[in-house]
Structure formats: structure tokens, C-alpha cells
């Protein structure tokens, strides 16, 4: 990265991205540490390594914009505005969680921040995002929607059906593919006989970003979101990234096909190097930021721990 990037990024947005990524990263690391103790009785699909995608995208979205997520929810939901406390309490199965202990890790909800829900059956929420865009069109509203999914979701028929629908009806939806190259343990080359962006390009304009580089995502997402807003028509953005953890759970991924370089593949390290070089932040300030976020995570865990579990009669509510 060069200081030329400075021309394309607002310093406040750089700081916002760094903070967003660090919250997701540090929270995921804490979850990974706590997970073996079973305080969270829910599967967790951690986003370590993938934080730049949602952090870069959400700089360009408002609370009114609707974002539909899949099963890997934590980083994108936090980036969109879901409060840390509400997410943590949901993971702890407490009534103060964002879904009142009915959703768990894969079903997060925060309409105030444009999160109308998320789904664990891979692919289906792409269509739901298209429906939010249809709502915007039919009601004459300004908001746009984002269907946020991974590379494996493109295997599902509903992905193709949804792109067709959005293109036919000219709906203001961004198809955001966070391509971590893996469907559970299967590499993309083995699960897709097509090139994802190539398929998408038959339906709509396509942008591509390096999903391990927050500045690349910021730049391309900025263009893509602007185009959706201006044309009120669908746009596709593919961000290639890397999944550091196993598909589910607290352990590091150890697949030979998925080698991770903790320096060059780390979106946080990359942005911090850039920001220090551009005098946007100092190492000392980064340390302070990390500490501040640790305190927020402490607070969220404490909040979750002192929140009540649902009563058994809640089961038929």
C-alpha cells in the first residue's frame, strides 16, 4: 500500500474500519478462548481473517440499508451496528440477546441497524435480501439491501434464481460474496465448476476486491454501493479472503489447501501498517484501542453472565 491510498480514504473511515475489525477479531479470540468451557451452548462460525470485508462494506451503508446474513454472522453484524452486548448475550443464551435467546449464533437480529435476520441454511437469505430491495422499490424508499453470503452459497440454486429475479425486476441490491475459498473443508475449485464473478456478470455489473485488504474493500465497495444507489439496480461484489479458523468452533484451520500467513493475510496488520505509515495512528494509540476494546468485551461478557436465562415455559411461546 502506498500513501496514494490516502486520496481515496477518509481518515475517519480508516479508523472506523480498524476499530470494527479489531472488535470482531478480539471478540472472536475471546470466544475461542472461552468456547471449550461450554458457557456458549451454540455453534460459532468465527470470522478471524475475514474482518475486512464487512468492515470495508459497512462504511458505505446507513442504518436504513438492510443486510441479510448467512450463518457466519458475528463480524458483519457487528460492522452493521449490532451492539456487542446483545451479540454476546445471544451467544450465552440469555434473554437480553439480540434474538432473546431464540436465535443463537447463526440467527442475529437488529432492525434498528438494518439487520432483519440471518439464516443458517446456506444460500436462502440471498433471496430474502432481494425481497428487501423489492420492498424499497415498491414503497418508493431510498434504502438499498445487501445479500451477504459466502462462496459455497453460490452452489445453491437460489443464488442463481435470486440474481435473475433482481436483474429482471431491477432491484437495488448488492450481492456481496465473501469468498473465503472454502465450503466447510472443500476448496472452491472442488465445489464450483464455474467462476463465481463470471456467472454473476451475466446478470449484473461485477466488482472485485482483495478481502484481506480493508482499503481494497473500502474502495470497491464504495463504487459498488454507489452504483446500486444511483442505478437502483443490482451489483455484485466479490471479496476474496481467507478463513483462519475451522468452519465451526474455536480451533485454527489446519487444512493443507488453506495455508495462512499471519502477517500478509491479516487485514488488521495490513491496515495498521498503512495507517502508521500514513501517520493516521501511532503504535501506542493502537495499543490503547486494543485495550479499550478488551474492556468493551469484558463488559459484554459481564452483561451476558448477569442476564437471565429464559424460563422453561418459554419453550412454547
Amino acid at each position: 500500500m502506498s500513501t496514494a491510498e490516502l486520496d481515496t480514504i477518509n481518515p475517519a473511515d480508516a479508523l472506523r474500519m480498524l476499530r470494527t475489525m479489531r472488535v470482531a477479531r478480539q471478540m472472536s479470540q475471546r470466544i475461542a478462548k472461552l468456547y471449550p468451557t461450554d458457557v456458549m451452548e451454540t455453534p460459532v462460525h468465527l470470522c478471524i481473517g475475514q474482518e475486512a470485508v464487512s468492515a470495508g462494506l459497512c462504511c458505505h451503508l446507513t442504518d436504513a440499508d438492510q443486510m441479510l446474513l448467512g450463518h457466519r454472522t458475528h463480524a458483519p453484524a457487528l460492522a452493521k451496528g449490532l451492539p456487542l452486548r446483545k451479540l454476546m448475550a445471544e451467544l450465552y443464551g440469555r434473554t437480553t440477546g439480540c434474538s432473546h435467546a431464540r436465535g443463537g449464533s447463526m440467527h442475529v437480529f437488529d432492525p434498528e441497524h438494518g439487520l432483519p435476520g440471518s439464516s443458517a441454511i446456506v444460500g436462502g437469505s440471498i433471496a430474502v435480501g432481494v425481497g428487501a430491495a423489492l420492498s424499497s422499490k415498491l414503497s418508493g424508499s431510498d434504502f438499498i439491501s445487501v445479500s451477504y453470503f459466502g462462496d459455497a452459497a453460490t452452489n445453491a440454486g437460489v443464488f442463481h434464481e435470486s440474481m435473475n429475479f433482481a436483474a429482471l425486476k431491477q432491484l437495488p441490491v448488492l450481492f456481496l460474496c465473501e469468498n473465503n475459498g472454502l465450503s466447510n473443508v472443500m476448496p472452491v475449485a472442488e465445489h464450483a465448476a464455474y467462476e463465481i464473478a463470471g456467472v454473476a456478470s451475466q446478470f449484473m455489473p461485477v466488482f472485485r476486491a482483495d478481502g484481506t485488504d480493508a482499503l481494497s474493500v473500502y474502495r470497491e465497495a464504495g463504487k459498488a454501493v454507489r452504483q446500486v444507489r444511483e442505478t437502483r439496480a443490482p451489483v455484485f461484489l466479490e471479496c476474496t479472503t481467507k478463513r483462519w479458523m475451522k468452519h465451526q468452533g474455536h480451533e485454527r484451520d489446519d487444512l493443507e489447501i488453506n495455508p495462512i500467513d499471519p502477517v500478509t493475510d491479516c487485514p488488521i496488520a495490513r491496515l495498521e501498517r498503512f495507517m502508521i505509515g500514513a501517520s493516521l495512528i501511532t503504535p501506542r494509540e493502537i495499543l490503547a484501542l486494543a485495550k479499550e476494546i478488551e474492556a468493551e468485551i469484558d463488559d459484554a461478557i459481564e452483561f451476558a453472565e448477569r442476564s437471565p436465562y429464559p424460563q422453561p415455559e418459554f419453550v412454547e411461546a
Binding site: L68, P116, L134, S135, S139, N164, F165
Partner: peptide, 22 residues
């Protein structure tokens, strides 16, 4: 709206519209 014969996506689209005010 006439729709393509994509019942699965059509249903998801209708759900998304219902969730966002329609």
C-alpha cells in the same frame, strides 16, 4: 408482479419484502 418459475427464490423474496414493510 409476474415472476420467473423460481418458487424457492420467489418465496424468499416475498419474505424479505414482508420483513421490510410490505
Amino acid at each position: 408482479l409476474g415472476t420467473p418459475i423460481s418458487e424457492n427464490a420467489n418465496t424468499g423474496v416475498a419474505l424479505g419484502a414482508a420483513l421490510t414493510g410490505m
